Computed example of a mutant assay.
Amino acid sequence: MMKMPASEEQQKIAKAFLSARAKKTPLTLYPGAMPATMGEAYAIQDAAIGFDGRTVGGWKVGRIPAELVDRYLDNRLAGPIFTDEIFDGSAGERPAMPVYADGFAAAEAEVLLRLGDVGTRDHDIETVKDCITEVRTGIEIASSPFREINRHGPAVTASDYGNNKGLILGPAIPDWRTADLIRMPVEFFIDDASVGAATMETMLDGPFGSALFLIRVLRARGIAIPAGTWVSTGAITGIHEIRPGQRGDALFNGKIRVGCAITG
């Protein structure tokens, strides 16, 4: 993937999404020509990050459905998570997480990796672990003013910050280097009702594969990866739509819990 400078049309799309997010205005239609490739999507995303001006503290990684991989030439997508939308929920509190009530909103149980120095070398699934300083449980909040963001393919999803609206940092996973992360049971609850359960065996090459993907894509886009960057590695139990007033909780390994309260 080559880095593409944003065209005037792509800059207009980026500004339209920023305006809708700032004003909390729902978008019933995509605000321009829908991107057809991931390169076009990231051109819009990069323009929006530049116009936004906030500091990026992490990146969400999402899976591209298998039947779309050949079309979009990748199996994952990425979107920025801004530092002012990253909250600590490791002590058992439920941070209040705002979503676009008239747009799309969901919560996802994810494993979070904190990167140290990634250097300039090419990594593989084993050496990338040497770049990771911490592994935590967590919840990604997915929300966009465009309610149909996930219905038009991964490029549309990526174009609006990858459909991200925040991250909750849950408790750390102790001894993550020797733990069997891939087979760890994970369950998600909305208002105490179980809505999904799975393991990371469903996540392509797992959370470390997500880190590898992100390093590759950000380098191709000319984006620095400072030490301390969080990687939200992908939904484990599914993308669970959620509404203001509801609570979301993720349970890892039957004992590590992280939660949030959804607001409008």
Rank of each mutant, 00 (worst) to 15 (best):
S7T: 15
Q10D: 13
I13N: 04
A14W: 05
K15W: 08
L18H: 08
A20K: 10
K24S: 13
P26E: 10
T28P: 01
L29R: 14
L29Q: 15
A36S: 14
T37D: 12
G39M: 07
A41C: 11
Y42M: 11
Q45T: 10
A48K: 13
G50W: 06
F51H: 14
R54K: 15
T55W: 00
G58C: 07
K60L: 00
K60Q: 03
R63S: 14
L68C: 06
V69N: 14
D74G: 02
R76V: 07
P80A: 04
I81N: 02
E85G: 00
F87T: 01
S90V: 07
V99W: 06
V99S: 11
E110S: 12
V118P: 09
H123A: 01
I125R: 07
T127K: 05
V128N: 06
K129D: 00
V135D: 12
I139H: 04
S143V: 03
S144D: 14
N150F: 03
R151L: 13
G153V: 01
T157L: 04
A158T: 14
A158H: 07
S159Y: 01
G162E: 05
L169N: 02
I182N: 08
P185K: 10
P185A: 11
A193E: 13
G196A: 10
A197D: 10
A197G: 15
M200C: 09
E201V: 10
T202E: 13
M203F: 11
F208W: 10
G209R: 08
V217R: 14
G222Q: 04
A224C: 04
P226C: 10
A227Q: 13
A227H: 09
G228L: 04
W230T: 03
T233I: 05
G234F: 04
I236F: 04
I239R: 03
E241L: 09
R243Q: 14
Q246L: 03
G248Q: 06
N253E: 14
G254F: 12
I262W: 03
